[in-house]
C-alpha cells in the first residue's frame, strides 16, 4: 500500500515537470484564443459595458497580443480575476497572460514564477482631499484621518511616507471603492489615498467632484504591467513586443487610421514596423504583419490611452508620466529593426 502511494506520488511529480515544457504559443494557437487574466472591474483599465464587451488599458494589451498572434483582436477569452488569485491563475496555466493592473516589483518578478513584459501604465499612490480643508501639499496632513482602499501595498506606502516625514495619522481601511468613497463623502476621513488612476475614478463618483482635489504628491512608484509565466521565452517575446509595438507605433506616428495607407507610402521605419520589409514577425513565430494588425485593430498606445482613461473617456487623466519620452513622459520603446 505504502509503496503504491509512493509510486503514485513520483508519477504525479514526473507528470508535473514533463508538461511544464509545453509551449504557450502552440497551446494558444491550438485553442484559437488567448486566455487573458483581467480585473473584475476597474474603471478605465478593465471594465465590461452593458453588452458585456470588455474595454480598458489592460484589456487592450490582451487584444494586442491576440491581434499579433491571430490577426484578430476579438480572439481573447477574458478571465476576471481577484487580486488574490491572479498569480495562481497565471502559474497554473489558467491564463496565458496576466494583464491586471499589477505593479511590477522585484519580489513578484523573482519569486512568483512570472516575468513582467513591460509597463503599460506608470501609476503612483496619491492623495485626494476636500477643498474645504485648504491643504495644498501632503506635508500639511499631520494628524489627518486617512481612508484607505485596501490594496496590496497602499497601506505600507502610506505608513512609510508619514513616518519618513514625521507626521501622525489615523487610518481607516475599506474593502471596496464604494465604501471608501462613501466614507470620504460623509466626512469620516480628511484624506483618501489610493493609486492616482483610481483617485480620478473615485473623484468622478462624488456627489460634488469639484469640491475635492488630488494633491500633487506621488508617494510611491507603481509601474503597472502585464506578466507571463517564467520559462517560456517564445511567448514572453510575443507579449513583450506586442506591448512595445503599441508604444513604438505612437512614436512613429502610426495610428489605426493611417496604418493601412502607410504600408505603401510610409518611411523606411514605418514600413519595417508594418511588416513590409524584414522578417520581424517570423523571428517570433508569428506572421510579419503582427505590428500592423495590432495598430489596425487596437490602435497605438496614445489612442488606447485617450480612449480608455484620457480625454476621450469620463476619467480625463492627463498623460503625465505616460507620455512619450520626447513629450515629457517616460515611455520609451525599443526600436523594431
Amino acid at each position: 500500500m505504502l509503496k503504491k502511494t509512493a509510486m503514485l506520488a513520483i508519477g504525479l511529480t514526473a507528470g508535473v515537470s514533463l508538461s511544464a515544457q509545453a509551449g504557450t504559443l502552440e497551446d494558444v494557437q491550438k485553442r484559437g484564443v488567448v486566455s487573458c487574466g483581467v480585473s473584475t472591474g476597474l474603471a478605465g483599465f478593465s471594465q465590461k459595458d452593458e453588452k458585456g464587451q470588455w474595454s480598458g488599458m489592460d484589456v487592450d494589451v490582451c487584444r494586442a497580443v491576440a491581434a499579433a498572434v491571430f490577426g484578430d483582436d476579438t480572439k481573447v477569452q477574458y478571465k476576471p480575476l481577484t487580486a488574490k488569485e491572479r498569480f495562481t491563475a497565471l502559474q497554473s496555466g489558467e491564463v496565458d497572460i496576466l494583464s491586471r493592473n499589477t505593479t511590477w516589483t522585484q519580489s513578484r518578478d523573482t519569486s512568483l514564477g512570472l516575468n513582467f513584459v513591460g509597463v503599460n501604465y506608470y501609476d503612483g499612490q496619491g492623495f485626494m482631499v476636500s477643498k474645504k480643508l485648504g491643504v495644498k501639499s501632503a506635508l500639511e496632513l499631520d494628524g489627518a484621518t486617512v481612508c484607505i482602499q485596501a490594496g496590496t501595498t497602499t497601506e505600507l506606502n502610506l505608513a512609510d511616507y508619514f513616518r519618513a516625514n514625521g507626521l501622525k495619522y489615523t487610518a481607516i481601511t475599506f474593502d471596496t471603492s464604494d465604501q471608501t468613497r462613501a466614507a470620504f463623502e460623509s466626512g469620516r476621513c480628511d484624506v483618501l489615498t489610493s493609486d492616482q488612476s483610481q483617485l480620478y475614478a473615485l473623484r468622478i463618483g462624488l456627489q460634488k467632484p469639484d469640491e475635492a482635489i488630488v494633491l500633487p504628491e506621488v508617494i510611491s512608484k507603481e509601474p503597472l504591467g502585464p506578466a507571463v509565466r517564467q520559462g517560456d521565452d517564445v511567448w514572453f517575446n510575443i507579449a513583450k513586443w506586442s506591448l512595445a509595438a503599441m508604444i513604438e507605433a505612437e512614436s512613429l506616428g502610426i495610428t489605426s487610421k493611417n496604418a493601412a495607407d502607410l504600408v505603401a507610402s510610409g518611411t523606411p521605419d514605418q514600413k519595417r514596423f508594418l511588416g513590409v520589409e524584414g522578417d520581424f514577425g517570423k523571428n517570433m513565430g508569428i506572421s510579419n504583419d503582427w505590428a500592423k494588425n495590432i495598430t489596425l485593430k487596437v490602435g497605438n498606445y496614445g489612442e488606447s490611452f485617450e480612449r480608455n482613461v484620457g480625454q476621450g473617456s469620463p476619467l480625463k487623466i492627463a498623460r503625465g508620466l505616460n507620455a512619450q519620452w520626447n513629450q515629457g513622459g517616460i515611455l520609451y520603446s525599443w526600436p523594431i529593426r
Binding site: G41, A43, G44, K48, E50, P80, S177
Partner: peptide, 9 residues
C-alpha cells in the same frame, strides 16, 4: 463591476 464602469461612475 457595473459600478466600476467609467461610464457609470
Amino acid at each position: 463591476s457595473a459600478l466600476n464602469n467609467s461610464a457609470w461612475l
